[in-house]
Amino acid sequence: MTAALPPVADRETWAAALADLRRREKAATRELDAVAAQRRRLPMVEMDDYVLTGPDGPIRLVDVFDGRSQLIVYNHMWTDGARFQCPGCTGFTTQFSRLDYLADYDARFVIITHG
């Protein structure tokens, strides 16, 4: 079985197709930028005083920020009673070994899970 390949064309035809594709890509990028800007302008909502359980016991969500203005949260999937937890989450989060640079962005990174 052979893989389906696009047609062979001369360089001029290829360049015209590439230019058209780039116009579409730029339009898509502009639209995604507009969507992201609209997301940033969404109104805020005041949250209830949410309490998590940390390694030292209960901790209020506001205290998880540890004085920083931004909190980056990764929700690690968890299955009660499983010997091994989500391999995708585990593989993803084990690569975070140097997060001290986040202080320059007034941010803190935390991993949360139901486990």
Rank of each mutant, 00 (worst) to 15 (best):
M1F: 13
T2I: 12
T2P: 09
T2H: 05
A3C: 10
A4K: 13
A4G: 03
P6S: 15
P6H: 10
P6E: 10
P7A: 15
D10K: 01
D10P: 00
D10E: 06
R11K: 05
E12G: 08
E12V: 14
W14Q: 11
A15G: 04
A15S: 06
A15Y: 02
A16S: 05
A17E: 05
A17I: 01
L18M: 12
L21Y: 07
R22E: 11
R22L: 14
R23N: 01
R23E: 09
R24L: 13
E25W: 05
K26G: 00
A27D: 03
A27I: 07
T29E: 11
T29I: 07
T29N: 00
A36F: 00
A36W: 00
A37P: 01
A37G: 09
Q38K: 11
Q38M: 09
R39F: 07
R40A: 12
L42T: 07
M47W: 09
D48Y: 02
D49L: 11
D49Q: 13
D49E: 15
Y50E: 12
Y50A: 14
Y50N: 07
V51G: 03
V51R: 15
L52Q: 03
L52K: 04
T53S: 03
T53Y: 12
T53K: 14
G54T: 09
G54C: 06
P55L: 05
D56G: 10
G57P: 01
P58E: 12
P58L: 09
I59L: 08
R60M: 12
R60K: 13
V62H: 09
D63W: 00
V64W: 01
F65I: 14
R68C: 11
S69Y: 00
I72W: 09
I72S: 03
H76W: 06
M77A: 15
W78K: 00
W78N: 01
T79Q: 10
T79K: 10
T79W: 14
G81L: 09
A82Y: 09
R83K: 02
R83W: 08
F84C: 02
Q85K: 04
C86H: 12
P87T: 05
G88P: 01
T90F: 06
F96E: 10
S97R: 14
L99W: 15
L99R: 08
L99K: 05
D100P: 04
D100L: 06
Y101V: 07
D106M: 06
D106P: 02
D106R: 07
I111Y: 08
I112G: 01
I112K: 01
H114C: 01
